[in-house]
Design a binder for these strands. Sequence first.
RNA 1: UGGGGCGUAGCCAAGCGGUUAAGGCAUCGGGUUUUGAUCCCGACAUUCGGAGGUUCGAUCCCUCCCGCCCCAGCCA
Length: 562
Amino acid sequence: MDNSTEKDEKPLDFIRQIVVADQESGKHATPVTRFPPEPNGFLHIGHAKSICLNFGIADEFNGTCHLRFDDTNPTKEEDEYVRAIKEDVQWLGFDWGENLFFSSDYFDKLYDFAVELIKREKAYVCGLNAEEMRQHRGTLKEPGKESPYRNRSIEENLELFTAMKEGKFDEGTHVLRAKIDMASPNLNMRDPVIYRIMKATHHRTGDKWCIYPMYDYTHCLSDEQEVITHSLCTLEFEDHRPLYDWFLDVLETPSHPRQIEFARLNLNYTVMSKRKLMQLVQENHVQGWDDPRMLTVSGLRRRGYTPASIRNFCAEIGIGKRESWIDMGVLENAVRNDLNIIAPRVLGVLDPLKVVITNYPEDKTEDIKAKNHPQNPDMGSRSLPFSRELYIERTDFMEDPPKKFFRLGIGREVRLRYAYFITCESVVKDEQTGEILEVHCTYDPATYGGNAPDGRKVKGTIHWVSAKHALKCEIRLYDRLFAVENPDADKDVDFKEHLNPNSLQSLPNCMVEPSLADLAPGDCVQFERQGYFCVDLKDSSPGQPVFNRTVGLRDSWAKRNK
RNA sequence: UGGGGCGUAGCCAAGCGGUUAAGGCAUCGGGUUUUGAUCCCGACAUUCGGAGGUUCGAUCCCUCCCGCCCCAGCCA
């Protein structure tokens, strides 16, 4: 009858539809999902999409979500990343509770499963080297050739596999392979490698093992061990699903999770692969994994993005199977929307220009009352010191401005936010360079607070700060890291060629209202008429904040002047 | 005819045989405003990659065609 309440419900994506269907059919009362990062780099916004999906489903349907580190390759993985990944997942607002796992937790079980495969004549030790194996694999259009070692006896395989485990062979001399079908049109099914010899120290198991299981083999069995119901991964693993199912079927495991693939996130003006992010860090194109220009979770955090804004972003872009490119503007919009609600408004001047109020007493200081949030009285107000000498934004003054410039110009009157109307009388210039040094104005004492008793209107309101009370500080403005929409588009051009040389602009001489000395690292504010800024987590010190611009305000004035 | 996937507006994305083809971003108008912000209103696909077919009726089912993405690591 009345479907008005249903109207604004966001439709379920295809994965959630499957979860609901499984719930309704009784297949799974509650879902168990997992987020399975490899600890070989920092998490980025693409991982955030997966985290929000997996943990989100668990939250919404009364299930659980495991955090499982997929650590099957000891040569690439490090503890430092484990620590950072945990911090990022928590910061995003998710809790794995007791469910913290490592694929390496299952190394013993995985080994037993491999022995079982051999006994079922579904795996064999192969002595082909990497190059030979590549040749035997065939091509996309031609079937592969069977390995000469394919029909070894169970006993021989068992003996050889034990020897592999005991370190009796060198790396690369033997592998354990699944015995499936060398003629399969799906290359993943052409007797894939299950175990390889790696004489490396593992970050958790140390030197216990010198053979390590491969991803395809490990992942399905780890999921199975944890009784995962829905194993969500990205599209490129679609071709691996038959193999995922094959291992579970052959081993007749009690549980058989369902792998479901979705499209990874692409954002324009950035790169998303861990390898490329790593390169930017190692070659010092950025100042670390948490550089505010990086779309890593830690970079976004340092940039001033809130966890809620990232979650909202992920919810907004949805889940599907289409390869899509999201505009960076959508991400920026997500922070604006969140910060617009929660960020206190303050006054700060990025590029200071001195203003002298010639008819204001030399030694006088007044308190000006300013709202902390014009739309939210609950956020209260504060007082701003006002005196004869002020700073305003250099871009808010033009000697001979065009008509539509609603700011200060010679002979023009504007409002100083919350303070007084001022009229510009003259400018003082550097005789050599012509640079404007000072602007001389008069104020109307009757306009205290920003309203004229005679009812006269003023077109513009500009921000300001009292010169002798201002806190001088550094503010960093960030722009997109790349100058083109898709830095990866041309395979013949290195993506780093497209780095935006102006992605970081540091302003060391900004003047902000004095109350900002009390801010703590991570606090965010809106500098009115400028944008949202946060106190840098690393480079700020007590009483001396360094600000990062998270994102600018929408600016229809700048837009029309393009 | 290797195999697997995907095509709805500038960018995302609902839609599940009968809808005025949701919603968001962007864009363009208008209003409010002591932030050129926010907020509020309005405009924005006769059409769903193309062509056929099934059906009273197709974005949705079938066929063919076109386009894009993924796969030949002892990476994940």
